[in-house]
Nucleic acid binder design. Sequence first.
DNA 1: CTGTAATCTACCCAATTGGGTAGTGCTTTA
DNA 2: TAAAGCACTACCCAATTGGGTAGATTACAG
Lengths: 207, 207
Amino acid sequence: MKHKVVIIEDNIPLSDAFAEVINTTNNFQVINSYDNCEEAIERLKFDNASIFLMDIELPGINGVEGTKQIKKIFPKANIIMVTVYENSEVVFDALCAGASGYLTKSLNPEELIDALNECIDGGAPMSIKIAKMVVGSFQKKPSKIELSKREKDVLLQLSEGNSYDSIAENLFISKNTIKFHLKNIYIKLQVNSNIEAVQKANKENLL
Amino acid sequence: MKHKVVIIEDNIPLSDAFAEVINTTNNFQVINSYDNCEEAIERLKFDNASIFLMDIELPGINGVEGTKQIKKIFPKANIIMVTVYENSEVVFDALCAGASGYLTKSLNPEELIDALNECIDGGAPMSIKIAKMVVGSFQKKPSKIELSKREKDVLLQLSEGNSYDSIAENLFISKNTIKFHLKNIYIKLQVNSNIEAVQKANKENLL
DNA sequence: CTGTAATCTACCCAATTGGGTAGTGCTTTA
DNA sequence: TAAAGCACTACCCAATTGGGTAGATTACAG
């Protein structure tokens, strides 16, 4: 029983090349190729594929949006993006949309087959550069804004939704002191409201 | 010129096995092995290694903390975690600490060498399961809390630090309407302050 | 057609927050 | 020893926000 693969790619020669490679394997089979998402989505249930190779730049709805729609109907679908985009925003959008993997189009046949296998093994095949980007996204660079220890304490409490009174209680200092620290925090973060301070602290990973 | 590798692993037979494998290659060389981070950090500059294989469970400071410290001194160090932990918190902590890769200890010699090569190619070698976890972390499951379109508008504006007055101006509705929507939002999110609402919206990916 | 949900507006009052000024005391660094 | 930074407290006032009540309009589904 071969795993069914659907290719969604508007570059027909490339699509055909993928299909040819995949059909040489003895555990994968391309059961349909489309040059747009709309058609592929219509035939979703009919094709009943387990893996989708998805281009991003497509006529009509793009690959990221298409991924969302396919995952909505077929949550178990494994969708591997195959694209030239290495732009971080596109990569993260695709992953957020539900892509299981992300390959750049420079891949060779062997890599493609490896990726398919990794995919059905429950993995997340990624090109080297993509893996690096993804891992890099966890490595938050330390902010250049420096808060004192006490300021961090106060801001953390604030971010948890505490009022000045609660913060004062929790930190065993007076409410006035909370205000004092907040004022300094606002200056350091260049904001002038509690929400902005918390949002900026989130963004800058200050807590 | 071989790439210098340092192994930090308190399981000596395992450490020796890694070293043996690595030393069979013609582009990597284990220049030192340690059974704790402290010693490795002391000898950082002396060893001048480009790749570190780091265990997580170590006597004294653990591998995650050790990774932070090494990256602080040697930002260019490539640190690959090699560990039995597949617990998501540990994985993400390690990546946040600056690890370039994350392998589980079930790896075979070939995988180890592949990982080293991928690492010096600027990649992020990961075991299949880890890659899946990392990619999965992007796929935020949609919240079950449902806000109306207008409520989302208001909450988004609020999260950007706007006051009720600004939001009213931006959305061309009265300040009272902002209050009205906020009240409903607070009920739906089960909070009772602007910060809590914004934080919860962030957490639940409501915007 | 009727009810329900969403959107919109208004008014009132109490509580919270933001901004300013003015001090004290402690520790670290120059 | 002086200066600088951090932590702390107090008081005042204006602005903002939270909670309650009351009502209007539109749109959509049963």
